[in-house]
């Protein structure tokens, strides 16, 4: 059993705080590190990978410090987000070089197996410079898996992959999690995390916003107050009808926009009641648009929840 323990970790770059006092433990199974772009996910993964020293706090692998400790790489496999990867080599040469650098007893066999795992055997003799983004990603995966690590860290692994490649990688990661490996991947796409990770850690603006079972957090996200901008044939009559319904918590008549700004705390009820109330009062709905559906606003809500 392998666990990465992050204890009161902060990381700042000059005056900018990228990661702010985060504590979490990443254990066996698949964990999703979720957050909007620029939230601090990559900074956190870099610290877990030993490529960045925490400004404060500790990052350990089964109790051993990761920073400036090369021996931890016997247990860690990394799939970085950046694309640089010795483009003048073939995919096979690249994975073999990684196996040799790990000083495996039979690097050729290990490289062959890793390439087969990511279904890149047929393209192994082609130069990496000729690969598509998805192929590069799979070869990166093979290089990370070549020494059979107990921990796999992946930074935005699905970027640039087509749906079929995405499914393949998800199946592979799920299998690795089921085998008892500690798999952590970062993503800013909710649906990716939903499909793959049972456990998630949410990072927003460098802070740890939520942690735990995905379904519970998803429910929290769905149940938060939602804001809508509504235009209708009779805004004031619609406002009067809506305020009588318990799903609505506030309504503002925006005269400049000639629209209603409605806040509803019961998402499910509001979405079914709004069209019914409009029909009963003979009001035509011209536009209904959510005004706070960005990931940032969803995550910001999680911080305060």
């Amino acid at each position: 059993m392998t666990t990465i323990e992050i204890t009161q970790v902060s990381r700042w770059f000059g005056n900018v705080v990228a990661v702010n006092d985060i504590s979490m433990a990443i254990g066996p199974g698949v964990t999703g590190l979720l957050g909007p772009n620029g939230a601090g996910k990559s900074t956190l993964i870099h610290m877990m990978s030993g490529f960045l020293a925490p400004s404060a706090g500790t990052v350990t692998l089964d109790g051993a410090s990761i920073w400036r400790n090369e021996s931890v790489y016997r247990h860690i496999g990394l799939v970085p987000e950046r694309e640089g990867m010795y483009d003048y080599l073939t995919g096979g040469e690249f994975v073999l070089a990684n196996a040799e650098l790990h000083r495996l007893p039979d690097p050729k066999a290990a490289a062959r197996d890793a390439l087969a795992t990511v279904e890149m055997t047929d393209a192994a003799d082609r130069r990496i410079s000729t690969y598509s983004k998805g192929m590069r990603q799979r070869v990166k995966m093979a290089s990370a898996l070549v020494h059979q690590p107990s921990v796999l860290l992946l930074d935005e692994p699905f970027n640039g992959m087509d749906p079929r490649q995405r499914m393949q990688l998800m199946t592979l990661l799920r299998r690795m999690g089921d085998e008892g490996r500690t798999v952590l991947f970062s993503s800013h796409i909710l649906e990716e995390v939903e499909q793959l990770a049972g456990h998630i850690e949410v990072i927003v603006a460098g802070r740890h916003a939520a942690s735990g079972d995905f379904r519970r957090i998803r429910r929290l996200m769905t149940d938060r107050p939602h804001q809508y901008l509504i235009r209708s044939s009779d805004d004031r009559a619609l406002a009067a009808a809506l305020i009588g319904d318990p799903s609505t918590t506030s309504i503002e008549v925006d005269t400049a926009e000639r629209a209603l700004r409605v806040q509803a705390h019961d998402f499910g009820r509001f979405t079914t009641e709004l069209p019914r109330l409009a029909r009963d009062h003979g009001i035509r709905l011209l536009a209904v648009s959510p005004s706070d559906e960005s990931l940032e606003s969803v995550f910001s809500y999680l911080i305060s929840a």
């Binding site: 990978s49 030993g50 490529f51 090369e70 021996s71 790489y73 016997r74 860690i76 990394l78 970085p80 950046r82 694309e83 640089g84 990867m85 010795y86 070089a97 990684n98 650098l101 790990h102 000083r103 290089s143």
Partner: peptide, 15 residues
């Protein structure tokens, strides 16, 4: 510059 050094640094190999 291109970040490929991570493939050397992420190995149990003294710097």
């Amino acid at each position: 510059d291109d970040g490929s050094i991570v493939y050397l640094l992420s190995k149990p190999l003294p710097r």
